[in-house]
Each structure stands twice: as structure tokens, then as C-alpha cells.
Design a binder for these strands. Sequence first.
DNA 1: GTTCCGCATGAATCGATAG
DNA 2: ACTATCGATTCATGCGGAA
Lengths: 290, 290
Amino acid sequence: MPESRLLLGDCHEELRRLEDASVDLIVTSPPYADSRSTTYGGVSPDHYVEWFLPITAELLRVLKPTGTFILNIKEKVVDGERHTYVMELILAMRAQGWLWTEEFIWHKKNCYPGKWPNRFRDAWERLLQFNKQRKFHMYQEEVMVPMGDWAERRLRNLSQTDNVRDPSKVGSGFGKRVANWIGREKAYPTNVLHLATETKNRNHSAVFPDDLPIWFIKLFTRPGDWVLDPFMGSGTTPRVAVDMGRNAIGIEILPNYYALAQTAVDGALRQTAQLALLESGTPYEPTEPE
Amino acid sequence: MPESRLLLGDCHEELRRLEDASVDLIVTSPPYADSRSTTYGGVSPDHYVEWFLPITAELLRVLKPTGTFILNIKEKVVDGERHTYVMELILAMRAQGWLWTEEFIWHKKNCYPGKWPNRFRDAWERLLQFNKQRKFHMYQEEVMVPMGDWAERRLRNLSQTDNVRDPSKVGSGFGKRVANWIGREKAYPTNVLHLATETKNRNHSAVFPDDLPIWFIKLFTRPGDWVLDPFMGSGTTPRVAVDMGRNAIGIEILPNYYALAQTAVDGALRQTAQLALLESGTPYEPTEPE
DNA sequence: GTTCCGCATGAATCGATAG
DNA sequence: ACTATCGATTCATGCGGAA
């Protein structure tokens, strides 16, 4: 059975509880810079880098040498210009010892509306990939996508099969879906992800869609690995992680979000246990890496 | 009639021939660091910024205060990492006096094939927008796009209203609501451009598709404005510029590309002249253009 | 069971107004 | 002058109810 460890507190301090080189994947979407100081973790754009650097130092410590850090972030407009704190952060993290391996693009199909005289709607965010070494674990076959017209629609939902863990669909539906894939050519994806933002979830103001952490968890971890989100919010990352048979660590500073995350992760753990019983009649056991 | 001015030489020097504040739009795709070293005598990534900064200084001089500079660029992978010269360039250009207004994403729908153990295919490039002032010319209506499915259903209900209204006379007291409904079949685009790369070989090592300069020329200029490409290659930018009734300046250092560009732009100018004759009512004469 | 329609809701940004 | 707040603008998505 997957384990989960949810911590209530400031991740500056809570991260110190974690052991060196104990995490396989970090996926997080920190509070974006905001001029307002009263909002959730509001940090001014001009002080964003100095606020975030102590945290990335801890993340560098807890990440395994073969692990990966995925950072979802986007710069705000300040005085008609894109602010430069994201670029400054990348440069500072490299000085800290991180390798800036890649930048994925999250294309937000349903971006915020609006009209301005000097700019269009912002429909993309950065997904920065950092590593400790040039060699890291990457399981590319896990995120391969089928080709052809039929696949075009599936490309939108990057991983529906793993997302849906409804036991009622296990018996017939899963086998059918697998059958659809047999005999079809598969292709590796690119570094551009097409996903819509979640609009249904009212609990958290800035949830990212389930498919985002799911995709990176499939790509960079195997069952039994440890996934960390130091700004878990309502718990999207740890919830889908345990759904996928990974162990999860989540940190949240606000008690009400922490409570939401606890409920969500507990539910996912119970579902995983039930599913294991249905499928094999034996308790769930994650696949052991050799 | 549109004018064209093609210069053969190093743009370091040729740009000095241009007057201050004489250009409305600069669109260019400079030689990327170290790639295509055989054709362009590539610049090493570590020296890219110092090589490019004197050119951007000249571009800042020749651009009108209300003009825009669109820079198509992407960082190369060096030692397993994305190089940081693009970020350093942005920071240096801001110190030079440029405003970094926006970053568009060019999503390349048919990106270069290939497979690597630690990264996926690169399917996007940066389109950096720089300006001299917060206020600049932008003609957003020129690039509006059809709306999605949601609007198509709405449009059926609108057909009755459409029949009632007088399309040519506006403001006859129908009120704001009708005005809002009308024209709802088109929406403003976002800052993500979905364009395929040009498959036709134009004898240039890195052509960008016609649609790319066309889109920005429509967005940031009007007929009669001046468009500059200091690295025109085989002349894509000046060719489509004169096609669209704009005046074009192009600079190219290699004689064979310069010759290709001359031929292409001359052809476009002749076509524009013939079209003008047709529209002015003069009978068509299949004579050879001079 | 389908398809269709109405409606709420966003990691937004600008410009004007107020302190 | 400089900061804080507010209204106007806008569209893809998913949900719920209806035909």
C-alpha cells in the first residue's frame, strides 16, 4: 500500500524534517508573485527570488540524485512589462547547484478572458524541469500517446485510464481500453502539454488539473517511489500520487487547505485498497523496482 | 506602391544606414547560437549576448517610439542543460532601454522528429515582444479568429436577430446588448500561436513559415508602414511585407541568400503592381513586368 | 440514453478613482 | 508622486437541467 505523509506548516521549516536524498520527484506550483500582501502566501515580485531560494535549497537536499523537480510558474505583468523574477530564479537556482534541464509549456486551452489595448489573453505557463545530475530516471514509454485521428482527441486528456479508478469500470472497461491500443502506432509526446484548467473545484483558488501531476509522475517515477509537493494546497499532487501507487509527501501552511488535502488523500488511499482487493483478492502491493 | 530596400552586408554596419525612428516593426529570427555553424558562421552560446547586444542597440535606435520588435529565438541544449543566453539577453536588453512587453509561444505542430533518452522533441519557440514605450500601435481586430464550439451553437439562435438588424447602419438604438451579440463569432487570439513549420525547402537553413511574420505584420502595422528584418535569409519577411502593402527593409550577409531574397521580393512587388492595375480599372495586359 | 442549451467561473490586466 | 482599490472587459469549459 502507498504511504502518505501530510505536514501542516511553513515548508521552510517542515522540509527540514525530511531526510537527505529521499524523494524521487518534486511537483509543485508555488504561490505566484503578487503585489497584494494579504492573499495566500502573497510575495511581492521584487522579493520573489530571495523568498523562494531557501526553499529550493532544501528541495535540492531532499531530492535523490536521480530525481527530478518540476516547477510550475508564470511571471505577472507589472507596469506593462513581464516581470523578470522567473528568469532571475532560474539563474539563481543554477548557482545553487540545480541543472536547468528543460522547459515544458503548459498550453491552457481555457485561459482567463479579458481584453486590453496592448496584450492578448495569457494562455500558457512554464513547467521548468530541474535536476541534480545529467543522468536521471525518465520512463518515456509510460507517457507515449497513440497516433492518428483517433488519438487526436485522446491527446487532450493525457491520461484518462490511470485517472479513473472507479472499481465499477475495472471489469469490462479497462480491458476494452487496452484492446483499443493494441496494434496502434504510438509516438513520444513533445514538450508542449495541452490541458484545460480545472473550473469545477471551488475548494482552492489555484488548483492545477489532475492530468498535470499525473503526467509527470508517470514520466519520472515508478510505483513505490516518493513524490513531494511542498505547496500542496487542496492536495491534488499527493492524491493522484497515491492513486498511482506512489508514496506522497505534502506540505501546506493553511489549516483549511490541509484538512481538504487530508480528506482527499485518505479517500484515494481507501479506494486504492478496495481496488486491490477487487482485482486480485490479495492486499495491494506496489511493484518492486529491481 | 510598397517600396523595398534590401541590403547586402553585416547588419552591424548596414543598420547604421537607417535613420532614427524610421521603422514600425522589426521581425527577425537571428542565427541561433552555434547551430547552423556551416552556413552562418555560428556564434558560441557563451558569447551570444555580447555578439547580439550591439545589434539590438541599433534596432532600438531605428525603431519608432510606437513600434514593436519581435524576436524569434530558442535556447540550445548544452551539456544536457538549456543554455541561459536567452534569459541573459532579455535582462541585458532591458538594461539597454527595451521594455519586455510579452512572450508569445510558437507551438510548432510538426516539430522535428527524433528521440533522446532524457528529453522529448522540442515543439515550441519563443517570440519575444519588445517595445520602447508602454503605448505602442496594436491593431488587434486584424488577427481575430473564429470562436469555438460554444459560439457556433449560440450563433444559430442569433440568426433571427441577424436578419433583423441592418448590417451597414450601427447605433440605431438597438442598445448595447445587441451590439455585444453581433460579432461574437470571432474572438481575440491568445499569446500561443499554433503554426506548422514550413516544409518546403527554400534553400535557407532555418526558414520560418510565412504565417509567422504575416501575423505580426497584421497585428502591429498598417499598409504603408515600414517593416525591418536584419537577418532576412531568403527574404520571407520582406516578401510577405510587400505582399501586404507594407514597405520592407531586409539585411543579409550571405550573397546567395541575398540573391534569393531579391528575386522573391521583386516577384512580390510585380504581383502587387499587377493587382493594383486590376483594381484601378485598367484593362489587364499580360505584358512582361520590367 | 442522447443531444442541446443556459449559466457560473476562473493564477488576468488596464485605467480611473481615491487616499 | 505613489500606492491601494474597483469596475469593465472577455471566452473556453464543465455541470445540471431540459427536450
